[in-house]
Structure formats: structure tokens, C-alpha cells
Nucleic acid binder design. Structure first.
Length: 478
RNA sequence: CGGGGUGUAGCGCAGCUGGUAGCGCGCUUGGUUCGGGACCAAGAAGCCGGAGGUUCGAGUCCUCUCACUCCGACCA
């Protein structure tokens, strides 16, 4: 049938071309439009609504753990950016500069923040004097700019939305505790809300954040077997404090350097949702981040009583979930396809036949399973089904990751696996950066993380064969 | 930063060896429809990415430029 053909034409299939499938979804689900500046995106209402749900949930969790929101300027004077050596070197290549105000050339050029460490540090040095001032647990919601050469909506754009937490502590232990605490907040958020399973671990020296003492990460696996760094949490030790002069007078009347952390998650999470849960019919949203959880599609809405009934159901459901009705004069079939593309978890069909039988038809987005539900059981059944979907999506993602996680004891084995497929490869490592580099050069896979959950699959380093220190997750990454 | 691709109506495209622009979808109005992307009728809509050149005449040929996009090296 020509109708079917049209449907498949709308979105490129994942297997055929994953990258195109991704951009098709982003556009067809109306998440993003390309902007007039290369690499920038217009986040459309539907995409932004997902971001707001993410934001609300994260913000709640930040506040629960004692953090306060602040807002820093968007510009950083060049001299300030340069105070911490590793940090500038890390970010310099992708910084955008403001050189003029109006027609006047500025005495000192200003960088558009790529991240706000230096701004926070500069502020902290002013507000921290005593151990009594500590800790300071701040977070900021904002956008940052990184002049990327290769860009993709949500995954890597020149400007993106994110949150950056910045904290100052009296001791190294407290900073370390905070770093791990927030990594755990991220991990549980991903698993509970986004239904994305993550691997928690530490970044290698090579992969860690510019200026950090240690970087921790949560890594997740996309549908094409590539890894995505979903969130990071950094322990700065007292490196930034020394560069910026953040000192406090301790109980023992001695002047000490403070210890800091920072942690961030971005709109990249939306990319992760797409690439973990999406399918060839479009986006699939976990109910907890779905702007619309139930879409009501009236069938034969011109028949007397149908629309009235549909509105009544909407009234009832709006008390327990995010529900919308599409009463436009489009064909029901068109609406089915449209809301599948947009990833709405649950569709409710209501037509003359249902009214006669005093029931509604529920259809799950994830597998098109149809449920016939008596009208008066709606309030109990809908939340139940939404929960089921949330859990099912998580399990599917977990199964996918497990089936795409391999073990290797030699670099040849890694090469063979990666020639064949994509995924996480667990392999032992001696800790030498040379070996890390060689693995990367030969397999194009990078060390994603040194997982907290260690296991021993061999005594020897996958690369040099010398004594191995730890197991590492390797993979090609976004 | 290297390699490829594309710029013509809101979107997707056609437009041959040069003669001032067309198709599909969408949009507007009216009507009939409605359980997997309906149909009829009547409309609205284009500085052919930009600049230069060749020509009586340029979406069409030549030169330059700009933008976007995809694939590789660096990054949330």
C-alpha cells in the first residue's frame, strides 16, 4: 500500500543510516530547527518541554542535596580565563571571543563562557573567608558556547543548555564526597527518569576535565553501539583554589586552600533519549520525560457524542497525567503516525464503538500493544500502564547494553569485535597512557571509564601484556 | 582542520544541448469524510543562496564567494 510506503519514507531506518535516522527524528518529532548560525539550534516547544521536565527533576534533586541556584555573567575577561593553566589550554581552541562593544574596541577581549569555573572561582575568592562560610553549594542553569567544528543537534552544538554545579569545601574529603554524591544523583536520575542504564566510573588521566584532579562519569550505550558520556562530576582538589586564591581561616587559625568540585549535564541528554529508546517509527519517550503522556484521538469525531466523550476523558485524565487531545480534522490514521513520531507513550482512541461498549482503546507506543479498558477503570489503568512502559524501556535498554558489552584480553580481539560490531569492550589495563593511546590508534575506541564495579578478567594489560591494574570500559564514543 | 554533498514556493524535489519557472506535500476557503498518514473544487505563495562574467537573452554556461549538511582528527 502506498500509505505504508510513505510512512517508512518519513524516517530513514536506523540500520540503513543511523546518523540520518537521528536527524530525521530530531526534525520530524519537532524537537529542533537548524538556526541561521552554523551549529546552533532552535529548540522547538516540544523539545524544550522535554528539557523543562529534565530540568525540574534535576533541580529538585539538587535542592534536596542542599544546593542553591545562582547566575553568573555570560562573559569572562581573558585574564580571568587564563588563571588556571590546564583549564585554558583545554578550552582555548573552542572559545568564542567578543572584541567590540558597539563600535568601540574593548581594552580586554571577553570570552563567551564555555563553562564557568573561572567565574565561580573569582567569586568564591571574595565570599569565602572562614571555615564557617563553607561549604558553598551552588548550581547554575545557563547556556554555554563552544566553537565546535563538527556539530549535531543536542549531541554537539555550538551553544547548548546545561547546568553546572560548582561547590567549595573545607577539606579534600568533603570535596571528594560531593563529587561522588552528585555522580550518584546523575546516575539515579538517568536510570529512574530517563530509563537509561549507566556505567559509573572514573575517567583516565587523558580523558579527564581540563584542570581537574579527577573526573567521574556516567557512560551509556546508544542503539548503534556507540558510547555517550551522559554526565560528569569533577573533583578539582585545591588546584583552582591555588590559582585563584580561594583561602579560608580554619578553626586552628591557619589559612588554608579550599577544595572544589563541579558537575554538569546538558541537553545532550535529549540526544541520549533519542538514541537509546527511539525506533524506526520515530521518537520513544519514557513517560517521566514525555511532555504529553497520553494523546487522545477521537475517531469519527463528527458522530454525535464522540467529541464530548473525548473532552470528558481529557478532563478526568488531566488530574493524573499529562494529557492532550487532538480534535483537529486530520484523519485518525494521520494522528496515530504523528504521535508515534513524537514518541507519546500512550494513545487513547475513543470512537462510537467504544462508547457503545463503555470502553477506550489504549495503545502503547513502544510496541503498539492494544489494551481495551473499561471506561471507569481509566484512573487506575493509565498510571499503571505508564509505569509499565517506563520499566519496560529501562529493561530493553539494559538488555541492549548487556548484549553489546564484550570482553577482550588482547588488542587483536578488540579489533575483531569492533570490526564486527559496536559496543562496550571490557578489557584490563596497566594504567599506562601509552597503552591507552595505542588502543585508540588501533581500534578508534577510547577509554570510556574505569568502572567503580571492578572485576578481573585477566592478569595482563590488553595492550602491552604487563601486569594489569584495573578493568576499563572501552568504546567508540559520540 | 581534511574529504564529499546540497542551495529553485513553508518542506521535499524536477527543470535536458540557454528563451523570465513547474511537480508533490503542506497552507487558505467551501463541501464530503473519519478504527493506521482521506477526497473533490477553488485559491495564495518564488530576487532560482550571493557577486561578477559570457550572451540579444542565464536556475541553466564560466569564475569567485557564502551558507548549510554528511563522513573522518579534538570535545558535554
Amino acid at each position: 500500500m502506498s500509505k505504508d510506503k510513505k510512512l517508512v519514507e518519513a524516517i530513514t531506518s536506523m540500520d540503513e543510516d543511523f546518523a540520518r535516522w537521528y536527524t530525521d527524528i530530531v526534525k520530524k518529532a519537532d524537537l529542533v530547527e537548524y538556526a541561521s548560525v552554523k551549529g546552533c539550534m532552535i529548540v522547538r516547544p516540544y523539545g524544550y518541554a522535554i528539557w523543562e521536565l529534565i530540568q525540574n527533576e534535576l533541580d529538585r534533586r539538587f535542592k534536596e542535596t542542599g544546593h542553591e541556584n545562582v547566575y553568573m555573567p555570560m562573559f569572562i575577561p581573558e585574564s580571568l580565563l587564563q588563571k588556571e593553566k590546564d583549564h585554558v589550554e583545554g578550552f582555548a581552541p573552542e572559545v568564542a571571543w567578543v572584541t567590540h562593544g558597539g563600535s568601540e574596541k574593548l581594552a580586554e577581549r571577553l570570552c563567551v563562557r564555555p563553562t564557568s569555573e573561572t567565574l565561580f572561582c573569582d567569586h568564591y575568592k571574595d565570599i569565602v573567608q572562614s571555615y564557617r562560610d563553607l561549604p558553598k553549594l551552588y548550581n547554575q542553569w545557563c547556556s554555554v558556547v563552544r566553537w565546535e567544528k563538527t556539530t549535531r543537534p543536542f549531541l554537539r552544538s555550538v551553544e547548548f543548555l546545561w547546568q553546572e554545579g560548582h561547590t567549595v569545601h573545607a577539606t579534600a574529603d568533603e570535596a571528594q564526597e560531593e563529587t561522588i554524591r552528585m555522580l550518584n544523583v546523575y546516575a539515579s536520575f538517568c536510570e529512574e527518569i530517563l530509563a537509561i542504564p549507566v556505567i559509573k566510573g572514573q575517567k583516565t588521566e587523558k580523558e579527564k576535565f581540563a584542570g581537574a584532579k579527577a573526573t567521574y562519569t556516567i557512560e551509556s550505550l546508544m542503539h548503534d553501539g556507540k558510547a555517550l558520556q551522559t554526565g560528569t562530576s569533577h573533583n578539582f582538589g585545591d588546584g583552582f583554589a591555588k590559582a585563584f586564591g580561594i583561602q579560608y581561616l580554619d578553626k586552628d587559625n591557619k589559612l588554608k586552600y579550599a577544595h572544589q568540585t563541579s558537575w554538569g549535564m546538558s541537553t545532550r541528554l535529549i540526544g541520549a533519549i533519542i538514541m537509546v529508546h527511539g525506533d524506526d517509527s520515530g521518537l520513544v519517550l519514557p513517560p517521566k520525560v514525555a511532555p504529553v503522556q497520553v494523546i487522545i484521538v477521537p475517531v469519527q469525531q463528527n458522530v454525535e457524542g464522540v467529541l464530548e466523550k473525548a473532552y470528558e476523558l481529557k478532563e478526568r485524565l488531566s488530574k493524573i497525567c499529562r494529557v492532550k487531545i487532538d480534535d483537529s480534522d486530520k484523519m485518525p490514521g494521520w494522528k496515530f503516525a504523528e504521535y508515534e513520531m513524537r514518541g507519546v507513550p500512550l494513545r487513547l482512541e475513543i470512537g462510537p464503538k467504544d462508547i457503545q461498549k463503555d470502553q477506550v482503546v489504549l495503545v502503547k507506543r513502544e510496541n503498539r500493544e492494544k489494551l481495551f479498558v473499561p471506561m471507569d477503570e481509566l484512573e487506575t489503568k493509565v498510571p499503571e500502564v505508564l509505569d509499565e512502559i517506563q520499566a519496560s524501556l529501562y529493561n530493553k535498554a539494559l538488555n541492549l547494553r548487556n548484549s553489546r558489552t564484550f570482553k577482550a584480553t588482547t588488542i587483536e580481539e578488540m579489533e575483531n569485535i569492533l570490526d564486527d560490531t559496536q559496543g562496550f569492550i571490557k578489557a584490563m589495563w596497566c594504567g599506562d597512557a601509552e597503552c591507552e593511546k595505542e588502543v585508540k590508534d588501533r581500534t578508534a575506541a577510547t577509554a570510556r571509564c574505569i568502572p567503580f564495579e571492578q572485576e578481573k578478567i585477566s592478569d595482563k594489560c590488553v595492550c602491552c601484556g604487563k601486569e594489569a591494574k584495573e578493568i576499563v570500559y572501552w568504546g567508540r564514543a559520540y
